[in-house]
Design a protein around this nucleic acid. Sequence first.
DNA 1: TTGTAGGCGTTATCAC
DNA 2: GTGATAACGCCTACAA
Lengths: 338, 338
Amino acid sequence: MESITIKDIARALNLSTSTVSRALRDSYEINPETKRMVMDYAEKVNYRPNPIALSLKENRSQSIGVIVPEIANFYFSQAINGIEAAAYERGYHVVIFQSQESYERELEKVEYLTARRVDGLLMSLSSQTIDISHLKSLQERGMPLVFFDRIPTEIDTHKVVVDNHQGAYQATAHLLATGRRRIAHITSQPGLSITKERLSGYLAALEEYGVPFDENLVKYCSYTAEEVEVNLDSLFALPVPPDAFLTGADRLALGYFAGLKKRGIQIPETVAFVGFSNLNVAELLNPPMSAVVQPAFQMGQTAAGLLLDLIEKKPKHPVFQTVQLSTELFVRESSMQQ
Amino acid sequence: MESITIKDIARALNLSTSTVSRALRDSYEINPETKRMVMDYAEKVNYRPNPIALSLKENRSQSIGVIVPEIANFYFSQAINGIEAAAYERGYHVVIFQSQESYERELEKVEYLTARRVDGLLMSLSSQTIDISHLKSLQERGMPLVFFDRIPTEIDTHKVVVDNHQGAYQATAHLLATGRRRIAHITSQPGLSITKERLSGYLAALEEYGVPFDENLVKYCSYTAEEVEVNLDSLFALPVPPDAFLTGADRLALGYFAGLKKRGIQIPETVAFVGFSNLNVAELLNPPMSAVVQPAFQMGQTAAGLLLDLIEKKPKHPVFQTVQLSTELFVRESSMQQ
DNA sequence: TTGTAGGCGTTATCAC
DNA sequence: GTGATAACGCCTACAA
């Protein structure tokens, strides 16, 4: 993989490297003829500046880093699409990594990206991440940092989230309004910001309808099949079993759907938090699944926009904001008798 | 983002940069004490070597590039997982880009990755890509190159694919064996290798069962809702409408499911090509969807393994191979009367 | 208008 | 055992 360098051009044209450099980047006084000659030759040999050399020199890379818990997750991959769209428009490259929900991997990727001189970092925290001192120190050392979806409370910076409280409240209220009283809430790990907010929305709706909270109806979980079994066992061993499900992700909902089906149990209504494109699946299930739709693409786009502003404007005393994007509730009519 | 460099350490310890460098990388004769002193100090100030400087010097980056048509596609994101697993194990980083099914974007990403000195490139072609001369010349200039899933025929290099012919044959044969005679084949763009292979498997099964081929039953398409409508219109305007669907991707299947539902048509059986984790969705649909399961993770893993072998062994005259991974047919019983 | 020199962070080579 | 120097590709202040 030998590549053409400025030196090669200089040698071929009997010029100095600086002249070639100037010609290529159209910097000040340069003989138009020389410039044309250089340009033509560069074109001919398909010259491409070496971004590594530039990064080394400028200590920046025209690229932003993204770290998400996992890529094979529709929600995050859509967010990445939004990020790419925003970055592309402003001439930045996007370098994507996944933490795989592991604190150590996350740490590792952060270090690597920092070392690679990304101009800024966009993150959604792994579920294992509790200590965020490394991110704090990163910010203190001047790295522009924006969080989305899974955000920490302990850092002051831009954050973009979906309004989880509102989404959960809306969904729970809908279920209560249609007569459900025992709503199981299947949700993610208790440490995450999204988990807490959804729980608070769930609680707010219960309170409004005067329905007592039963903590046995809340299950924190990951995605293993055994867990589904255990949780369903305990839910349906309750004196009054659940008559509805509110789940924190479409994948959770699908897992529980399958578990319920296996047991021959039909639940009148299920609502799940989903990214846009899972919506069509929701409709095709039997009974169909209602959905709290989260604008993942928009979230990525917004987060990237804020990050690029930070990078380019380098404000001395930035005023950080937390953007809350609204969810939308899609209610699907069940074909079951109610 | 000021960072600690070898120079800083040298200055602090009153040593030369070369001594520090040697101490850090444990290269030849060095005073054990000096070494310890350097190590301790480096640890203390959290020194991290600058990979950019290394890349510039070594003309390599300990990272491989991946270009897929899109990330927000479960099949590809699972493949990426496999790639990361293999790369991580062998100490390489993975840099991920998407072409968004655009030839121009693909070209752009290839150039950028090349300029970034990735040590090798892993690609799945965009559906728009016909001319692959840029990839050929890349290979000629010595860049290790491995293709997966969407592969070109015109380049001799390692390729990893799912056995699409076999998968389509198996699925079609199953449908024919259960009495279907009018099998609609909804598939991807005609130019792609996977499209051709699946069609050939479909044809082989038809021939075996003595069922004449009707080209009106084959629809090449992308993912727009209008297209679904147009295609369904023409399929159900046929003298003998379809009694089964074989679709090239789960997303296509879901789109057509929704379209059929809207029209109140029930089709006895549908088979779709899916990645592993869509399997649970397939079961939950009504009627359930049978599936040709493609081992996406394994595909990524295999492709990355081959690429890393190429990179590390740099064989003068490599013997390139095309690995065909087997699919598995999951038949879901329909609850409909047959 | 063009050339020379120095530096970004690192390592390899050669000298001491 | 350690230090000085050059080189990777590029850019820019300064010199001519």
